[in-house]
Design a protein around this nucleic acid. Structure first.
Lengths: 144, 144
DNA sequence: CGGTATCCTATAAGATACTG
DNA sequence: CAGTATCTTATAGGATACCG
């Protein structure tokens, strides 16, 4: 069979988080951002762009628009991470790690990832199903 | 300080690999694709789009355009992964893993990652600098 | 506060043709 | 084979205004 991007997991993932705004929105959700205005301010894009992206991420099941009500206030909505969205964390971590290593300026990284309690920095490692760490060069990518 | 995407490692990484074609080109490079025509066919986009992307990836230092010569042929060029490009592998692996889990159709994944020799499938795990595995919920993302 | 409506620009990407 | 040139379309994203 000729190679088909329609069945490639990477291409399929990019269908959902393949834009800058989508990935930054997911970063924000993982940082604890919940309200529309905060997404807008922190992503650094206009309301229309952010609104469109949040709508798509909700439709794709990475975020959920949940009503809530503070005492004495009217009902509002907040964007909460679903499990599907939460499991994007390795992608964000790998991107941050690569950006730290290769794209930061002299100021150093402005985004940190810590092991809660332990306090040490967190990075991704590759591991195989047999339990081995997979060092550079021992991973074979194959298109079936 | 207000949050600044100009110093966020994720945003900086997306400056380079934030488009579909860039990420797919890097997937291809990791699959062993080296020649222009193969990138075009396998990415599934037109020559102009692929040419632009390869040029950017070379400029950003993820690929290198290397001359080579088969006996009796004229000199040609191939696109080779640099260390910077090779270290993007965790990002691709995390994307593939998430796509496998959440975005594949009934046919299952068409892209495999195996531990060379061992043969077992490969996935990413999060680990802290102290050596602990970091399970879901124990990672704290902080914007400094 | 949490958006929508409109209009505009920039860029990603498709289509086709051509060249060394 | 490895692109470039040209033209077109689709979409990401910016700017501004407005609304419940």
């Amino acid at each position: 069979m000729e190679w088909d991007n329609a069945t490639c997991s990477i291409a399929l993932a990019l269908d959902v988080v393949g834009t800058r705004s989508a990935m930054l929105a997911m970063r924000e959700a993982h940082l604890g951002t919940r309200r529309f205005d905060d997404f807008v301010r922190r992503i650094g894009q206009g309301e229309p762009a952010v609104a469109a992206r949040l709508k798509e991420l909700v439709a794709a099941g990475l975020l959920e628009r949940v009503p809530y009500r503070e005492p004495g206030q009217r009902t509002r909505h907040e964007y909460q991470l679903t499990t599907k969205g939460r499991e994007l964390l390795p992608v964000l971590t790998a991107l941050r790690q690569w950006g730290d290593a290769w794209q930061t300026g002299p100021e150093g990284p402005s985004l940190l990832a810590k092991h809660r309690g332990c306090g040490a920095g967190v990075h991704t490692v590759l591991r195989c199903a047999a339990g081995h760490d997979v060092p550079d060069g021992e991973l074979e990518l194959i298109s079936a």
